[in-house]
């Protein structure tokens, strides 16, 4: 099946929660997602980027849907060029079972 989020929820200023269409729940700390911004600029300088905003200061101002495949986030640091595809987000899910490689992403 194709993964797509059923709901995307901002949990205060700490994190974003996604409930997927297969029922899986992912909770992404804001800093973690921001650090994984897939846009070209961020990937270029990822190696030597310094966090400008402390925790609690960095959170999404706006979340928008991009086509049928991604979301785009405007952060409090005004960065908004990252397009987080559903595939990327699912891969980034920090939960133990996803990260331990007990792969629940493979069902065709």
């Amino acid at each position: 099946m194709r993964f797509s989020p059923s709901t995307i929820r901002r949990l205060g200023k700490e994190s974003i929660e996604i409930v997927w269409n297969d029922g899986h729940k992912s909770v992404y700390p804001n800093r973690y997602l921001r650090d994984h911004c897939p846009c070209a600029t961020c990937r270029e300088r990822a190696a030597h980027a310094l966090p400008v905003l402390g925790s609690g200061e960095l959170y999404p101002v706006q979340i928008g849907v991009v086509g049928r495949y991604a979301i785009s986030i405007r952060w409090t640091d005004r960065h908004d060029t990252g397009i987080f595809s559903y595939t990327t987000l699912r891969r980034l899910c920090p939960c133990e079972s996803c990260q331990s490689g007990v792969d629940n992403v493979t069902t065709a």
Binding site: T7, R10, I18
Partner: peptide, 8 residues
């Protein structure tokens, strides 16, 4: 259906 975006 597109995802619903919610605020806590």
């Amino acid at each position: 259906a597109p995802p619903t975006i919610l605020d806590d």
